[in-house]
């Protein structure tokens, strides 16, 4: 860890001005916001993150979870994962989010970790964590040690020849299925970005992970009003029973009209370089009958473009089973 300065932001505008002095809001940022610190501090200890300045935003009034005028839900950037998971409205109307949050980390971490911090959670790729290894995400242009290395945990969708790191979050998979919108306040005012446009594919610039610019502060996210009659679920598959990142996970929101599927959103975790929305699967299912065969066909479609590495070929089949099973759970077919 390197020496850094810790300042406390009194206002949102203070925070924005402080971070705007950084040349980037992406990997290698000079100035970082700190909220729960469960991810950032780890990476500072490993010298993966070397901010000169930390801006403590814990005092900002951004921790509320409340209904929006449109019947949706507004979740403050600083709302703790544990609080969101246990929120009565979330449990009632956005069960997939509660389940996803509770499947991640440990109670201690969830008590600290925040909604926006989780949105920006770093990959668990072992080479990203190790400054002695080449990693294009950590150090642009240095190479990717994971390709041809230890890549069992890494992505099979959205990868490039420069990076195959997985987005490790559970929350973000649920938020993708729920079509969350991320609200950002920056130097040029406020803007809203749908979660499907928030994350960048690695391409040739894996060091850039999101659309955030210097000075951008995520203030809250919003979820659209729950789809009447829809059910949702999150299924996470991993080696051990708890406290591990997903090998594959699925977030499903589905509404049936009798047998027919009238609304469906499908997202995957543990397999993509970003939280993965499976639009192909959704298209295939819409208007179809909720049957095991259709679910499997949709899962095949979702993994159609998968590009496995030397150790993670099994994730293709695992992700398909995960999707199929989660869909069956939501539709309650046998």
């Amino acid at each position: 860890m390197e020496l850094f300065q810790l300042v406390t932001a009194q206002t949102i505008s203070d925070a924005i001005q402080a971070q705007a002095r950084s040349a980037t809001a992406q990997n290698g940022a000079d100035v970082r916001f700190i909220a729960g610190g469960t991810n950032l501090v780890d990476y500072m200890k490993l010298n993966v993150e070397r901010p000169r300045q930390l801006v403590d935003i814990n005092g900002l009034p951004l921790d509320k979870v409340e209904k929006t005028a449109e019947g949706g839900l507004r979740i403050g950037a600083l709302a703790r994962n544990a609080d969101v998971a246990q929120d009565a409205i979330v449990k009632e109307s956005y069960a997939v989010l509660s389940e996803a949050l509770l499947s991640g980390a440990s109670p201690q971490l969830r008590n600290m970790a925040t909604t926006a911090g989780n949105l920006l959670q770093k990959t668990r790729c072992v080479y990203y964590r190790d400054t002695a290894s080449a990693c294009n995400k950590r150090q642009a242009g240095s190479g990717c040690s994971a390709i041809g290395g230890y890549n069992r945990m890494l992505a099979i969708l959205g990868t490039s020849d420069h990076c195959i790191a997985t987005n490790p979050s559970d929350q973000n998979v649920a938020l993708t299925a729920l079509e969350a919108v991320i609200h950002i306040e920056g130097r040029n005012g406020q803007r809203s970005v749908p979660i499907s446009e928030f994350y960048l594919l690695p391409g040739s610039t894996p060091e850039r992970e999101t659309v955030l610019q210097p000075g951008d502060l995520i203030t809250h996210i919003t979820l659209p009003a729950p789809v009447a009659g829809a059910k949702s679920a999150y299924l996470k598959l991993r080696d051990r029973a708890s406290y591990e990142f997903a090998l594959a996970s699925a977030a499903i929101v589905m509404k049936q009209d009798g047998e027919r599927i009238r609304y469906v959103r499908v997202a995957m975790g543990g397999v993509g370089t970003r939280p993965w929305r499976a639009v192909e699967a959704e298209k295939m299912l819409l208007g179809k009958a909720a049957t095991a065969e259709n679910f499997r066909a949709a899962a095949d479609a979702a993994l159609h473009g998968a590009r496995p590495q030397s150790q993670n070929g099994f994730k293709v089949e695992l992700a398909k089973r995960c999707l199929t099973h989660a869909m069956r759970q939501v539709s309650q077919i046998a």
Binding site: V126, Y150, S242, Y243
Partner: peptide
């Protein structure tokens, strides 16, 4: 062990998986 570098790469309690209470 990464065969190229000889480094034990899963050198922490998250990446070296052991049984937890839930197991």
């Amino acid at each position: 062990y990464d065969r190229r570098s000889g480094a034990p790469v899963n050198n922490n309690l998250a990446d070296y998986v052991m049984a937890v209470n839930a197991d």
